[in-house]
């Protein structure tokens, strides 16, 4: 029996909180696509060590994998939006961390998994090691009537998308109808969320300008280790929680800094999300459970 997506939240095994206004950017789409949902995980930073921030750094990712596997209605696919591993200067260690990450997430029951790089994975070698494991760093695909575009704004250590990729993006978008439902996946925010904290993409405004003629665009990203929602015109941008440690809210402190582990509330501020593409689409946040 087909399961009504509206029943999904009741059925989901791990519970969660729904972002009330949903996917504003998709609200007006013509919805020719079949309803489905996907799961976004981000900023797992495999290889990070620091008990003050996460004494279970070696076990949080596995708990998230178990939580996704426990979803009673499995997603159509899963996406990791970058910083799969924590940075290291040692190319061998980088590859070891990428291999371990790949092995852990291979335990996901759903094998339709899309990967993106973060600056911790890719900026020190322009994405070379990351591509050995996961292939192209930017790409697009279609799923049940929704066009997904993964943008790489991390392989350049100066946080640029770059002229070549912007030209590819334009060519990709040229094939889409102006009312096509489009979901953009990226690591850094495309807009200037907090440039003084490195929470921006140098040429992100050019990508947004290319997307602006399209009426139904929503962006999901990571990097800032917390949920955040922002509009640039009619385009909604939603950042995801981390799976290693949260960072303080933009502008809330003089400098960017992590939020220390709270032993009274372990895993507080960590989690993943589901995104339902029905109208209105919904974002549901899930915690990491001990």
């Amino acid at each position: 029996m087909a399961i009504d997506r509206r029943d999904f939240l009741k059925l989901a095994g791990v519970g969660g909180a729904v972002f009330a206004s949903g996917l504003a950017g998709c609200a007006g789409m013509s919805m020719k696509q079949d309803d489905f949902y996907f799961v976004q995980l981000s900023d797992t930073h495999w290889g990070f060590k620091g008990d003050a921030l996460n004494p279970d750094a070696g076990g949080t990712l596995q708990k998230a994998v178990a939580s996704v596997n426990a979803l009673k209605v499995q997603p159509d696919f899963i996406v990791f939006t970058g910083d799969l591993t924590h940075t290291t200067d040692d190319p061998k260690e980088r590859r070891r961390r990428l291999a371990e990450f790949r092995d852990i997430v291979s335990k996901l029951n759903n094998k339709n998994v899309r990967f993106m790089a973060g600056e911790h994975d890719a900026s020190l070698d322009n994405g070379q090691a990351w591509k050995e494991f996961f292939g192209a760093s930017y790409y697009s695909f279609d799923h049940k009537g929704v066009h997904f575009i993964a943008i790489d704004n991390v392989s350049d250590p100066a946080a640029r998308i770059g002229e070549a990729q912007l030209a590819w993006l334009k060519a990709d978008l040229d094939k889409q109808a102006k009312d096509a439902p489009i979901v953009v996946l990226t690591h850094r925010p495309l807009f200037d969320l907090m440039p003084a904290w490195d929470w921006a993409t140098k040429d992100g405004a050019q990508a947004i300008a290319l997307l602006m003629p399209y009426r139904n665009v929503t962006v999901f990203y990571g990097h800032i280790h917390q949920e955040h929602h922002h509009m640039t015109g009619h385009i909604a941008h939603h950042s995801a929680k981390s799976l290693i440690f949260p960072l303080v809210a933009p502008g809330s402190k003089p400098k960017r800094e992590p939020v220390p582990w709270d032993a009274a509330q372990p895993y507080k501020g960590l989690g993943f999300r589901s995104v339902e593409t029905e109208t209105p689409a919904k974002i549901t946040e899930y915690p990491v459970k001990a």
Binding site: H86, T87, T88, D89, E119, S123, L124, V154, P157, A158, A159, P195, A196, W197, D198, P254, K255, R256
Partner: peptide, 17 residues
């Protein structure tokens, strides 16, 4: 006013400024 390193340079980059 703050200034930062905005070219990712390794573990410690995020505190460089």
């Amino acid at each position: 006013f703050e200034f930062i390193c905005d070219v990712f340079c390794g573990d410690g980059h995020e505190d460089m400024g």
